[in-house]
Design a protein around this nucleic acid. Structure first.
Lengths: 105, 105
DNA sequence: GTAATATTAAACCAAATGGTTGAATATGCA
DNA sequence: TGCATATTCAACCATTTGGTTTAATATTAC
C-alpha cells in the first residue's frame, strides 16, 4: 500500500526544521565543531547536539572525532535521496513548462 | 540567525510522511476524490482528510469542489520550492562529481 | 592530579503529530 | 421529504519533537 522508504522519512523531516537547514548550510561551507555551531544559535548546547543527531540519522551530516571535538561536515550525497525523489516529479513539471512554451511560441 | 522559510517547513514536513508521499504519487497521475483515496489506505476517512489538509497547507495539492465531492490534484509547482532549495546543493555535489571525473580521466 | 573544555546522556516538559470515534454539515437521489 | 453519500469538525489519546537543566564522560592543559 504505502511504499516503505524510512530514509526519505528521516531526510525530509530533518529538512523541515529551519535550525537544521541553517546548520546544513554552515557545514556545507566548512567543517565545524559542535561548539562552533552552538555559538550561532540561541539555544543550549544539548539542543544543537540533538539536532545533529537527527541530521546524522538522516545522513545529512557526518561527524569525525578530533581530540575532544566532534567535527561536523556535510555527508557525501547528503541530498541525493531527496533529489532522486524529486526527479520523477521534475519530469512532470518540466513537461508542463514545455507545453506552456509550446503554447507561447 | 536562522532563515525564516515557513513554506519549506511545511513542504518538507509534509513530504516526511510515507502516506502523504503515496497520496502525492496518486494524485499526480490523476485527479481523485477524498473517498477514492481513502480506499487505498488502512485508516479512517478523517485521517486521510487530515493528511490532505496538511498537504494543502504545504501547497502540494489543491482541492476543487465537485458537488459533494472534493477532487484532489497535484498543485502547480508543488515541488518547485523543494527543488529550488536543493539547487544550491546540487551545484555543490555535481561539482564534486566533476572533480572525481577529472581525477579518473 | 586537578581544572577547564567539549560533548552526550538522562529526565523532564509543552506542543505538535498521527491516529481514533462520533457528531455535524452539505449534497444528491428516490 | 427523507435517506444515503461525502466530507469536515471536535474531542480525545499515545507518541514524537524540540526544547530545557543537570549529571556524566572524555580529552586537554597546567
Amino acid at each position: 500500500m504505502v511504499e516503505y522508504a524510512l530514509h526519505l522519512d528521516f531526510l525530509f523531516s530533518s529538512l523541515s526544521d529551519p535550525t537544521r537547514r541553517d546548520i546544513l548550510a554552515r557545514v556545507s561551507r566548512r567543517e565545524l565543531s559542535v561548539s562552533d555551531l552552538v555559538q550561532h544559535y540561541n539555544m543550549s548546547f544539548a539542543a544543537i547536539s540533538k539536532h545533529l543527531m537527527v541530521m546524522e540519522r538522516a545522513k545529512l551530516i557526518v561527524k569525525r572525532k578530533e581530540g575532544r571535538k566532534q567535527m561536523v561536515s556535510l555527508a557525501p550525497d547528503a541530498l541525493k535521496g531527496a533529489d532522486e525523489y524529486l526527479e520523477q516529479y521534475r519530469l512532470m513539471w518540466q513537461g508542463r513548462y514545455d507545453k506552456l512554451d509550446a503554447l507561447i511560441q
